[in-house]
Nucleic acid binder design. Structure first.
Length: 968
RNA sequence: GGGCGCUUAGCUCAGUUGGUUAGAGCACCAGCUCGACACGCUGGGGGUCACAGGUUCGAAUCCUGUAGCGCCCACCA
């Protein structure tokens, strides 16, 4: 019965086999009707804009770790997967593509055709994204995969909008949007960029009505004078105090406008201290207008010309008007001066022309009450942030209670379920009066009815003569994302999923969407279901590139997780992801292009970013390639590099290490017999590794409970590599060769079984592959009582051991032995002694330690190459020996004929100097009355003890030096 | 401008409530192919904990300030 593990771990093969095995068995499919306390997570749905990058790999690896771990703990788990339609971003990408390929604008294509094209794009990228998630190992319930624009989500969106509208949470209002006068469309904030342009800063004056005074102000946009509705000064500005409440006359249009005091809009020191207020064309002015109940005067037409009603200026382009107005003001004597100035101006990403803030009708969600609900949920501790400080971000933002503009002038998204009609209310009552899925309110400004409906209203619903037309706009993407935790579970239907898995257990996300997404989920969750959407929010760090910048597609510094998986394996990727999920810090990940010709890693430089560099010459093979990154298409003439990073080698190496240790076991399992184990009769080394295992499992569990992923990974690395492989496996080698190997095999297999369970949430492919191999040789295993194990490590129970396994006295004995071995190895290395040559050693120590060391002689021989061992209180230093001091013992290694007396003396002298330095430090501490009086007695005692040890060590070293000098 | 963070070895990062001589991985140096593993083994070198003050018997850790960096928000008439 011998089974071998292949010489090499093949991560690609392991991945394919495991994925098939898991999916065929539907291990991760949730059953809301089954038993078990629920543990659920909804995925932060990736945008279908493009492929996933390393940030997603991090986000999803952490979620998967939690899901796999909780599943092993016996929870009834659901991880809900899906993607987000990402309105603006996706539409922009597809529009750009259409433009590039066919030279057509969206208007050329028309709404229906463009939307269809976007659906095609969505199908393609959704497939790719879900594929990437799968390859990472994500244990999602794929059968439940949702999309924010699918029918289930659409129903939730409709219901939410309808209820909010009915309860007056949704209203129609004015808002300044970024208007692209060239494309004649509004653009989102993130579709704009600011650029510094040469501009001017004009100063004018307005005459105060009924006085001979003037008020001076400055502006960079004189044409907006036409829309001025007030002049504001600071309330505490004495220069203008007497003018507040009076009026000024705008010379060119003759309108009289008030002088108001506004401490928010105006900064006393800036400019003249007075500001013209143009509510319809400036955000700050608009806000000021709301505070002071000022009117709105829209001066701009959609094409950037001045609207009708402004006399000679009407119909002219705004820049022409700017010129004319400055000239006209000067002629009238109201011009005070002009200075050149660099101006930060918002531009449209798409047309590259300057943005005009323009007033338009939009839909809003009233935030006061909803925000308060969400604030209370966190303040009352119902929703908890990890790390806690992120609650501040959340609370600060919600505290502003700014109404949420939910309409977007796009075609891709949930169309706003509002219909307009200029009919009589009687018509509405006649047609919809008996229906509870329709409601309406009056829009007096535009003399029409705003009708909201749960189900679409046909254009002829009111009859042939009365038009009823749907709003053209769509909802902000975040409106549907905000419903994600309950919409994906079928709300508003009371589905079994909703009852079992909602509220979800934890949300895992990154900090930049705490406000946009997390806060809104809490709001809508409470509004729709009366329940919070999740109990905990874990915020993980961000992965930055080697220069400390966030990774993004446009910069071209992102990494495709599949590149990493193909080079280092998914386990290595996950290892590294968990490893860098620390509490505080973002993590830098220097990226390299891997030369497609010779595999050399060529570090990405900043000039490679933003797709500026299309060709890179490999410094090794001198051949040319295209750097890796977000290139839309393959280059027919140039090979594109994959990307990689040395950071992932640690994970790959760790996987290999565990693989090889397992392989060693497999080579020594002949004759394996399952059997009971009595822990307290086991040899010392077995009790030691079980003690360490108990501690490791306990620590790991508590790390995971507190989302300390990085520490979880470190704890495991340390246990598996340093304790299990470096010491325990070595210590058990002897026993595997003798006739009593049965127990050694059982313990080794038992510990490996435990290791596979513990490592599984982190490195599932590796764990499962070894688990399956172990299945063939020892399906019955475990400590203390073996049992038939589960068919997959996914289904195995998470380890938890009795506290009695932890034996500090045994750990101390092993630690001392290890220190002795290290001391011997150090001498061996110092003299470059043959590793195989046994060394006779003498150890001066107490009687009890001597007894202990003698009992560990076999290990000392195997691990430290000890030949003769003499120990006890009477041991004398042999002549010409190297020595090493330890608080518990002095070890002497005879180096007859080998010793370099001079070098040894120098080294000893150096040690003495170091120890004396420490003595001085401690003595000064102890000499300090404050320390002795105020420090805890324990700390003081420890210092005294250390002082004592150091002195006696110096004494011993000095004696050894004397005898060395004398030729002994 | 407001808010939240960060600055520890050449690089990337740990460092729990202040308490012996500040840790890890990579890189570096030296030695090692002895039957799991060179993606390895053994040992070693390397740090004024950004800077300046303060609190304390005692500070990488707490407070203040300065400099640099990152992110989010608001962006200036």
């Amino acid at each position: 019965m011998s089974s071998e593990l292949p010489k090499q771990y093949e991560p690609q093969q392991a991945k394919q086999e495991c994925l098939k095995f898991w999916e065929d068995n539907k291990f991760f499919n949730a059953n809301p009707l089954a038993k078990g306390e629920p543990f659920s997570i909804v995925i932060p749905p990736p945008n279908v804009t493009g492929a996933l990058h390393l940030g997603h790999a991090l986000n999803n690896t952490l979620q998967d770790i939690l899901i796999r771990w909780r599943k092993m703990q016996g929870f009834n788990c659901l991880w809900m997967p899906g993607t987000d339609h990402a309105g603006i971003a996706t539409q922009a990408v597809v529009e750009k593509r259409v433009k590039e390929e066919e030279g057509k604008s969206r208007h050329d294509l028309g709404r229906d055709l463009l939307v269809k094209r976007i659906w095609d794009w969505k199908e393609q990228y959704e497939k790719r994204i879900l594929g990437q998630l799968r390859e990472i190992g994500s244990g999602c319930d794929w059968d439940r995969t949702r999309f924010t624009l699918d029918s289930v989500c659409a129903q939730a969106v409709r219901s939410t909008f309808f209820q909010m509208f009915k309860q007056n949470y949704i209203y129609r209002g004015k808002r300044l949007v970024n208007w692209d006068t060239h494309l004649q469309t509004s653009v989102a904030d993130d579709e704009t960029f600011t650029e510094t342009v040469k501009g001017s800063f004009w100063t004018f004056r307005y005459p105060v009505v009924g006085s001979d005074e003037f008020i001076r102000f400055s502006t960079t946009r004189p044409e907006t004078m036409l829309g001025d509705v007030a002049v504001a000064v600071h309330p505490s500005d004495e220069r203008y105090a007497h003018l507040v409440g009076k009026k000024v006359r705008i010379p060119l249009v003759g309108r009289e406008i008030p002088i108001i005091a506004d401490g928010i809009l105006v900064k006393k020191e800036f400019g003249t201290g007075a500001v013209k207020v143009t509510t319809a064309h400036d955000r700050n002015d608009y806000a000021c207008g709301l505070r002071h109940n000022l009117p709105l005067i829209n001066i701009l037409a959609n094409d950037g010309t001045i609207r009708d009603g402004f006399g000679v200026y009407s119909g002219l382009d705004r820049y022409e008007v700017r010129k004319r107005i400055t000239e006209d003001m000067e002629k009238l004597g109201f011009f005070e001066g002009k200075e050149d100035r660099d101006i930060e101006l918002a531009h449209s990403d798409r047309s590259k022309t300057p943005i005009e803030p323009i007033l338009s009708d939009q839909w809003f969600v009233k935030m006061d009450h909803l925000a308060q609900l969400a604030i209370d949920a966190v303040k009352d501790g119902k929703v908890k942030f990890y790390p806690e400080r992120y609650a501040d971000t959340y609370l600060d933002w919600l505290g502003e209670k700014r109404d949420w503009c939910i309409s977007r002038q796009l075609w891709w998204g949930h169309r706003i379920p509002i219909w307009y009609s200029k009919c009589e209310e009687a018509d509405l009552i006649k047609v919809f009066g008996t229906r509870n899925d329709v409601c309406w309110i009056r829009d007096n400004e535009n003399h029409q009815w705003l009708v909201c409906a749960l189900n679409d209203i046909p254009a002829d619903a009111l009859g042939k003569d009365l038009q009823i037309v749907q709003d053209n706009d769509v909802l902000d993407t975040w409106f549907s994302s905000a419903l994600w935790p309950h919409s994906t579970m079928g709300w508003p239907e009371q589905t079994p999923e909703l009852q079992k898995y909602y509220p979800t257990s934890v949300l895992v996300t990154s900090r930049d969407i705490i406000t946009l997404w997390v806060a809104r989920m809490v709001m809508t969750g409470l509004f729709n279901t009366g329940k919070i959407p999740f109990h905990k929010v874990y915020i993980h760090p961000k992965i930055l590139d080697g220069f400390g910048e966030t990774m993004s597609k446009s910069k071209g510094n992102g990494i495709d997780p599949l590149d990493i998986i193909s080079r280092y394996g998914a386990d290595a990727l996950r290892y590294q992801m968990a490893h860098l999920a620390t509490e505080t810090q973002d993590s830098r990940m220097p990226v390299s292009n891997i030369c497609p010709h010779c595999e050399t890693l060529v570090a990405v430089k900043q000039e490679h970013m933003y797709m500026r560099t299309r060709k890179v010459t490999c410094p090794n093979c001198k051949k040319v390639f295209r750097p890796g990154g977000p290139w839309p298409f393959p280059d027919p003439e140039l090979l594109t590099a994959c990307q990689g990073s040395e950071r992932f080698e640690q994970g790959r190496n760790f996987a290999t290490k565990l693989w090889n240790a397992s392989r060693f076991l497999f080579l020594n399992l002949e004759g394996y017999q399952a059997g009971n184990i009595e822990i307290h009769t086991l040899p010392l080394e077995d009790q030691w590794i079980l003690s360490r295992l108990q501690r490791t499992a306990e620590e790991l569990t508590s790390h995971l409970e507190e989302f300390r992923f990085s520490e979880s990974m470190r704890t495991q690395y340390e246990f598996i590599w340093s304790e299990f492989c470096d010491w325990y496996v070595e210590m058990s080698k002897g026993r595997l060769k003798d006739e009593n190997k049965a127990v050694a095999q059982r313990v080794l297999v038992g510990v490996l079984d435990a290791i596979l369970r513990l490592i599984h949430p982190f490195m599932p492919f590796l764990a499962e592959t070894i688990w399956q191999a172990l299945e063939e040789v020892c399906p019955v295993r475990g400590i203390p009582e073996p049992s038939r194990v589960e068919k997959s490590v996914v289904l195995a129970a998470w380890p938890k051991y009795p506290a009695s396994w932890f034996q500090p006295q045994i750990e101390a004995r092993i630690t001392r032995m290890q220190e002795l071995v290290r001391a011997i190895r150090e001498v061996r290395n110092r003299y470059l002694l043959d590793g195989r040559k046994l060394l006779d050693i003498k150890v001066r120590c107490s009687e009890s330690i001597a007894t202990d060391l003698k009992s560990l002689k076999a290990f000392l021989t195997h691990l430290g190459g000890v030949g003769d061992l003499e120990c006890g209180p009477e041991v004398l230093r042999p002549s010409q020996s190297a020595s090493h001091l330890h608080p518990d013992f002095e070890v002497y290694i005879s180096l007859l004929g080998l010793i370099d007396v001079q070098a040894e003396l120098v080294r000893m002298e150096k040690t003495i100097v170091e120890k004396q330095k420490q003595i001085l430090a401690i003595e000064s501490k102890l000499g300090n009355e404050g320390f002795v009086a105020k420090a805890p007695p324990k700390v003081v005692a420890l210092q005294r003890e250390t002082l004592h040890d150091l002195s006696s060590q110096i004494k011993v070293i000095s004696e050894n030096m004397v005898s060395l000098k004398q030729g002994n």
